[in-house]
């Protein structure tokens, strides 16, 4: 019997791309139509962008050099922004962890609690953080606490979903082995599932912090504390040198948190 087969199929190369089905072709066409509709509806204009360049150049020329007159008070505000981000994220993570255990499918066995937890996460995520800030300003008044609470809710929604998915994806073997020895479901979750999902938990937590730092900057615009208010006031007063200082401070803070987050993530993933 020959060891190779020559069927003749090798003579013609197969086409590089599969011919789309009628349904796929319709899908592509509808997708393209939606894109054109969205671009036209959102007022996209390259002309306006080019015509606005002199104004941008004027803004840049009037912003430099950045003003250092209020460096002390601005530093205190950016520190407050960072404090809001840290405490808000931590509060959100503490809220997210127990809820995510219920939200993860097939983990606790309670469908009702699972549905409630997933609905809460959906609510936390779908309402923008700026809207949460407005709500908390009504509840606790102006100031950083309202912003901290808004960040907490946003972080809980963001982290909770990823926590639940990480636990769903974790290897169930160790938990099953423990259950076979009479270990309670809750103990098996804390002993086997959560440690397996821990790298993902930490990565998600660090992303939450980075996201919170960026959010905390804009929350000041609605009076929920942080440096955003300083930026708004400086812009409204055409005090562009001070605005430039605020923008640079935000840039340094966000960059520092992202770099620190990347470093910690790398260390954790490498074990």
């Amino acid at each position: 019997m020959p060891s190779t087969v020559n069927s003749g199929l090798a003579r013609t190369l197969p086409s590089r791309f599969a011919r789309p089905t009628a349904l796929a072709f319709t899908g592509y066409t509808v997708g393209l139509a939606v894109l054109v509709w969205a671009v036209r509806g959102s007022g996209w204009s390259v002309r306006e962008l080019i015509e606005g360049m002199p104004a941008f150049a004027d803004f840049l020329s009037r912003s430099f050099p950045p003003s250092l007159d209020r460096l002390g008070s601005l530093t205190r505000t950016i520190v407050e922004t960072f404090q809001m981000a840290i405490s808000g994220t931590l509060t959100g993570l503490v809220l997210a962890l127990p809820l995510s255990i219920f939200a993860a499918r097939d983990l606790t066995g309670s469908r009702v609690l699972g549905s409630v937890a997933r609905a809460l996460f959906a609510l936390f995520r779908t309402v923008p953080d700026l809207v949460w800030a407005l709500i908390f300003v009504i509840i606790v008044g102006l100031g950083p606490f309202a912003g901290t609470l808004a960040i907490a809710v946003d972080a809980a929604g963001f982290a909770g979903r990823f926590f639940a998915e990480a636990m769903e994806d974790a290897d169930k073997g160790p938990a099953d082995a423990l259950r076979a020895q009479g270990v309670r479901r809750s103990d098996a979750i804390f002993c086997a599932i959560i440690p397996a999902a821990m790298p993902s938990f930490i990565t998600t937590s660090l992303f939450s912090l980075e996201k919170a730092v960026r959010s905390s900057v804009v929350l000041g615009l609605v009076g929920a504390g942080g440096i955003g208010l300083e930026l708004k006031v400086a812009m409204d007063m055409f005090d562009y040198p001070t605005a430039a200082t605020v923008i640079l401070m935000i840039f340094v803070l966000v960059l520092a948190v992202e770099r620190a987050g990347s470093f910690v993530r790398k260390r954790i993933i490498e074990g």
Partner: peptide, 11 residues
């Protein structure tokens, strides 16, 4: 669960 606690299992 109580019974399984008296059993050792190796997979």
């Amino acid at each position: 669960r109580e019974l399984r606690a008296s059993i050792g299992f190796v997979a």
